[in-house]
Design a protein around this nucleic acid. Structure first.
Lengths: 147, 147
DNA sequence: TTTCCAGCAAGAACGATTCTCATTATATAC
DNA sequence: GTATATAATGAGAATCGTTCTTGCTGGAAA
């Protein structure tokens, strides 16, 4: 099983550390997520790959990839869990969540603003005796398509 | 049906504008949420009120109160939706989400930092042609209890 | 090649949420 | 104050996303 892209290579290495195989089904999911604008749910991935993988396999693979730190979950409306590539693969970003269609779009901000956000996160965490691992600004509103 | 607290009065007024009654069951839920440290799920509220309201009624009332803008939903781990009083009732705040126990704690920051966050939100939204209605900094990590 | 085990597919099971429907309570008209 | 219309309730069935179970498959290593 040859790896084609740099992404595949990075994921394969990570999975190898966890003694997990980077099978074709898992590659399909990772590539689908790499080409997405934002997090996707199991059902959305099922559509995206045109049923090439059964839903039950998608759920299992998503759980495996999350466990290995390749994917990060995002819990959205209607009990839907969407997944996206973890930040070490796709970079730190925030979320625009549409209250109409539920779609989530990834956005990044410049370093200056990101540093400000970091400071706020640190202040909050230290005050609350909370050990912060990650953070995201979740901005709720209406996307351009639903406006 | 006399209102006891200022909160009850505010909620009652809001519901009246929507031609919705502030029944005793709804009062029980609003008061339970007013006394909570963070958002609660339907099941947690069911426990909180010791089964005084059936689950089906709790779900229906939560939906009604959300529709009227009295409650705001928060989607957490394991497909659980937790509710809290809307920001016009409890003030703007952010969330500390424990990756172990799943609990959500509300936190506020001082105006200086809040303004910085606002600026970042505005920058992101305008760049993405997104109409922002609300935002929250979701900080993931381990709470003091699970540390 | 044979053995072994991670991964797979299909469907059952599960749990949170929503829906249905008959009953009860509340407001408004008379 | 009673009648009538409308809103809300409670109990349980139904739904839907997700997870689990079971038996099978296919690739890695000896």
């Amino acid at each position: 099983m040859t790896t084609s892209s740099g992404l595949d290579r990075e994921v394969e290495t990570r999975l190898a550390e966890h003694r997990i195989r980077y099978t074709s089904g898992r590659q399909i999911l990772v590539r689908a997520l790499a080409g997405a604008e934002g997090p996707l749910s199991a059902a959305e991935l099922h559509d995206e790959v045109s049923g090439a993988l059964p839903l039950s396999s998608i759920y299992r693979s998503l759980a495996v990839l999350e466990e290995a730190g390749v994917l990060a979950p995002h819990h959205g409306t209607k009990g839907l869990t969407r997944y996206e590539l973890a930040e070490w693969l796709k970079g730190h970003h925030h979320h625009l969540v549409c209250i109409d269609c539920g779609a989530v779009e990834d956005v990044t901000v410049n370093d200056h603003h990101e540093n400000q956000v970091d400071r706020v996160v640190n202040e909050i965490s230290s005050k609350a005796a909370f050990t912060a691992f990650n953070h995201a600004l979740e901005i709720e509103g209406r996307c351009a398509r639903c406006a």
